[in-house]
Computed example of a mutant assay.
Amino acid sequence: MTETTRYSGGGFVHIKNPHLEAMDEDVLYHLDLGTKTHDLPAMFGDVKFVCVGGSPNRMRAFAQFMHKELGLEGDGEDLADICAGTDRYAMYRVGPLLSISHGMGIPSVSIMLHELIKLLHHAKCRDVTIIRIGTSGGLGVQAGSVVITDRAVDACFQPRFEQVVLGDVVVRGTDLDGGLVEELLACSKAIPDFPTLVGHTMCTYDFYEGQGRLDGALCSFSNEKKLEYLKRAHDAGVRNIEMESTAFAALCGLCGLRAAVVCVTLLDRLEGDQIRASHEVLQEYQQRPQRLVAAFIRRRLGLRAAAGNTRPSSD
């Protein structure tokens, strides 16, 4: 049976675990937070936006960028890592925004999301929008393009996330919020210096064989077989490939979070496997999803862009 997305009534973040109600304390171990050690409603109760991405440095740079974009006092250079007591994830609070790292791949993003969703629930947050901003491999699109995901699909091009639970395969839907897709696309019209498009995002469990690369330590297929698979993915509507979107969409949707995925492409996988762009070019590419999401948040809050600040700083 497939579990499908249901947005929560009243805008609250709802957990889907009856056992938590009987717990005297909930320790969010990998975030170094807890219901007894921290006043979560006071710390996070007015959070409206959560942005997540793989790299701790990148999410710190995004938080500093948003500090300026939101017109907050100070320069943002002294932002404190809320999760400093752990080396698993990094979290920064900037006004109504949380900027959090999630590491690489489904296991890492899943652990972070379980604890983040519980945090938002315990904090009694309402009407939260969560966006993954990251990098990806493109499929039939030029490097540097920003893809707004309309459907997260698995390696068989199906909109599903499969999780083995107590030996059984649980299938969960991967619906994303169509309204958010349209709103983000509308925001992109004001940023003409890079291409933005809407397409399916394929999520895999591996960077090498799972994405059809020929350059890993193991490879059991030919270049012709690889290209045939990638062309089938393109024909199915896939425009980029990464390693988190199906788990992200499934968990957020089931717990009432309106979610979106916005990733830049670092190469076109139909043309090769290795990322060869310079460090400076890759840095600029990685800022593109952040600039789009910043424009979206400013628009939601009714704010203009901060004068003289159109790009995040480098990592």
Results as ranks from 00 to 15, higher is better:
Y208C: 15
R213E: 13
G199S: 04
L218R: 15
D175Q: 11
F194Q: 02
L218V: 15
L214I: 14
Y205V: 13
T196M: 08
G212Y: 07
C219F: 01
D215L: 00
L214P: 10
T174C: 15
E183S: 14
A217V: 11
M202V: 03
G216W: 06
K189D: 14
T201G: 07
D206L: 10
D177V: 02
C203Q: 08
G178V: 09
E209P: 01
G216E: 06
Y205A: 12
T204M: 12
Q211Y: 02
G210F: 01
K189G: 08
Q211M: 06
A190W: 01
D175M: 12
K189Q: 14
G210M: 04
A186Y: 05
I191A: 10
G199A: 11
S188Y: 12
G199I: 07
L176D: 05
F207W: 02
E182P: 06
T174M: 09
T201K: 10
D206G: 06
T204P: 05
L197T: 15
F207C: 01
L176W: 05
D177W: 01
L214C: 09
D215R: 10
G173M: 02
P192M: 09
A217M: 13
F207V: 05
L184C: 13
F207Y: 08
D215N: 06
L214F: 00
V198A: 13
Y208F: 13
E209G: 04
A217N: 11
L184N: 01
I191D: 06
D175L: 05
S220E: 14
P195N: 09
S188F: 06
I191N: 11
V198D: 11
T196R: 03
C187T: 11
G179E: 14
G216D: 13
I191F: 03
L197M: 15
T204Y: 01
S188M: 03
G178C: 10
G212S: 07
E182D: 15
F207R: 00
L218D: 14
G210W: 01
L214T: 13
G216R: 05
C187E: 13
C187R: 00
A217Q: 12
V181G: 04
D215K: 02
G173N: 08
L184H: 03
T204R: 02
D215P: 09
I191W: 07
G179S: 03
D177Y: 00
G173H: 05
V181C: 13
L184V: 05
Y205G: 11
H200N: 14
F194L: 03
P192A: 12
G216K: 04
G210A: 10
E209D: 10
E183T: 03
T201P: 02
F207L: 14
L184G: 01
A190Y: 09
T201H: 03
R213W: 09
G216S: 11
P192Y: 04
T204F: 05
A186W: 00
L185H: 15
